[in-house]
Design a protein around this nucleic acid. Structure first.
Lengths: 234, 234, 234, 234
DNA sequence: ACAGTCGGGACACCCCGTTTGT
DNA sequence: ACAAACGGGGTGTCCCGACTGT
């Protein structure tokens, strides 16, 4: 992330015909490589690095062993690129395309709603979360990538907050990075608990402290009427 | 968890000599079994189920394979019991021994502080978090255990909230389960982010929304002046 | 070699029954290990290190891979011990049991005759020769072992020469190491050529320069009549 | 060998510019083929057939796999031609260009000196020796080639002896083939031992029996004074 | 009776030599 | 001449059953 090109978002080209568009100028090898990444991103996200065998990737991609190793020197290299792919996809799906939304608070609330309502673009849950736990020991390369992914995510949210402060929409006392961290933490935590429990209620419950926090950021003079906190009331 | 006996908390017997106390009445086999669990809890928590080989357990325990398999029928059974052991340890360390603290809010704040200041009693981070991600696919037995562990944790926090409501300390509009979920989510999320980033700042930042929420729960009439939210201010 | 124990000579125990002799006191694991070495010595000697797959060893020993790797940490370790086994066997077969023979020249001629008439105790030819070529590139461990084996071989022949000089049987101008090297070189060279050609004639022909040399070493006053060199005459 | 054309000796064209000489009339494909052979001859000679992977040849030649397979149907065919190339090179370097030297004994001694002083024209040692050991099992095609190479080598030396006998320089009792075999055996054996030991002393020591033999072949009436055999004396 | 040795399959990742489209 | 894909086989390691000697 961070340096990633938004155009790499997966699926964006999956519906391409054989017309002469720039996208279809991918060589056959690049198409195969991409297909492998798409499958691998899902499998690694679901099963973890150790839990996912190359044989499963062979089956998923329809390629033989040699076909895969032609494009990736090792399982680890494949896992790294697959994570990058997955993380980019997730990032775009959740904090992308916000330009059309006016105002910092609506933008932040949109991000939250996306997590609450839309499933992960990559099956298996948040790639960042999975990578963080999977790479807990060892694998510094993947860890570095996960860190970069998180930092980019935080940067984007913090940027929204900064713009809100600059425009006067948010109180100038707000700390953009802290807001970003708090948002991401609540959301990721809610995702974990929902995964454990098997239903989305913990994720819903995680909305409450976020709303409290956002309300306090709001610089508008109107009172925070209790009715507002429906979600925290019984 | 849930059905576990709190006396199994590890370390409780670690200082036992060979005198005839009740604890030392463990048979030699039971001591060995316990020693295996103590080591396995750490290793599985650090490396995950697939990532941890029996050979590592052999090395860690100093036993041969046959010695381990005498006590546990399979790697999975060992992992299950090791998780139970780890989860119990973590639970007690974080939400145990709160009777001496007066009031619901102080109790809740104590829990939060413990996560912020004390390291995980089991190296490798929160066992619940690790198990949740590790068992994402398959392994329904471990998943069930993780769920039970989470439910117990949530139950304990919700009980504190309920007592606070009953005593009038907290608003009667508070939803105990929601508060518990929100707290746990923020904390777990903060733990994940701190693990990725390699420092505790995200965990610190996760305190803000929790404080906002706790303040709103407070039924005391004093105004919630903004100055209170030091942590959310610059 | 050099430090080897003559009791390790293979085949020495191959005819052992189930009586309670000292040799049968080998544990089951040690017996298996030995069986593996006996087979591996032959296969590696015939096919070389790279040319011999573990699957062939599995077939030859009747063991599964796990069974073999129980006794040897790696293919390389197995190859090393197998070479040591083969080299010791060959050494004993060719330069062992010479005490009963009187005189340095008869001893040296016996060694030569053994090479000319007896087949290699380890099928596949002289292990020293094979290892020398097989380990031409890399594998310093095997190379070191081969060197030790050669040095021991040379040492034994040189010792015979030295004794011959001391007893007055050989001229005091003889250089024991040079004699040893020349003998071994002629023999090994003859072995190679015979292997290429598929018949023993080059080995027979290699006898001539050796006889010339031995005759010159002889300190006895009788003339070296040309008729002696039957092998160099037509 | 044997049927090969001496003009294929490698290096003969290595200094060729792009002028219109007959040699540069090689098509581009033939030049590539030759470049592959030059590299392959070295690699196979150093690592053996099984020990040398096509990927190494790719790296050495700078070609892709397909590029190599355009010129050789299989790895084995390539190895065969590479050996022929290497063997021819070695033969010419050691027993070629002897016409300028007068007399059979000087010619034979020149051959010996070349082995003792000049390094192998193909890195990795004597191709004949390497092939003989490498192809010990199976590979009848290469074995046949090695045999032909040896036979040619022996034939050339025997021819020198025959001419010496015909001219009266050598005793008529000499057996040309035996002399050739003995010479080659001593030299090859010395090469092997020097390779094992890592220094040239065994090769030097192998000179002694050869000198003894050559002296006995000499038909000149002068006595074989002991001082001649400096190398065999201390 | 039991700790521990031994052996068994299965499978991991990786790389090989090869063929096919381009 | 290359890029891509193909199978098959390389070594090494896994988890675990079963036997063994104390």
């Amino acid at each position: 992330v961070g340096t990633h090109d938004a155009k790499i978002v997966p699926g964006a080209f999956s519906h391409i015909g054989d017309n002469g568009t720039r996208e279809s100028s991918l060589t056959k090898g690049e198409q195969t490589r991409r297909r492998i990444l798409e499958k691998a991103a899902v499998l690694f996200n679901q099963r973890g690095f150790e839990g996912c065998a190359m044989s499963e990737l062979m089956e998923a991609t329809g390629l033989e062993k040699g076909g895969i190793y032609k494009h990736f020197a090792s399982k680890e290299e494949l896992a790294l690129e697959a994570f990058r792919f997955a993380a980019d996809s997730a990032l775009e799906a959740r904090v992308g395309d916000l330009e059309a939304i006016d105002g910092a608070l609506p933008k932040l609330r949109t991000i939250i709603e996306r997590f609450l309502t839309e499933p992960s673009p990559i099956p298996g849950g948040c790639p960042l979360l999975n990578a963080a736990v999977d790479t807990d020991d060892g694998n510094p390369a993947l860890r570095k990538l996960a860190r970069a992914s998180f930092v980019e995510w935080r940067r984007r949210i913090a940027a929204i907050v900064e713009q809100g402060i600059a425009s006067g929409e948010l109180r100038h006392t707000a700390d953009p990075v802290q807001v970003a961290d708090a948002m991401i933490a609540s959301i990721e935590g809610g995702l974990v608990l929902s995964r454990i429990l098997g239903n989305r209620s913990p994720l819903e419950h995680a909305r409450a402290p976020l709303e409290s926090m956002l309300n306090q950021l709001d610089s508008s003079p109107r009172d925070k009427h209790p009715a507002r906190n429906r979600s925290a009331a019984r």
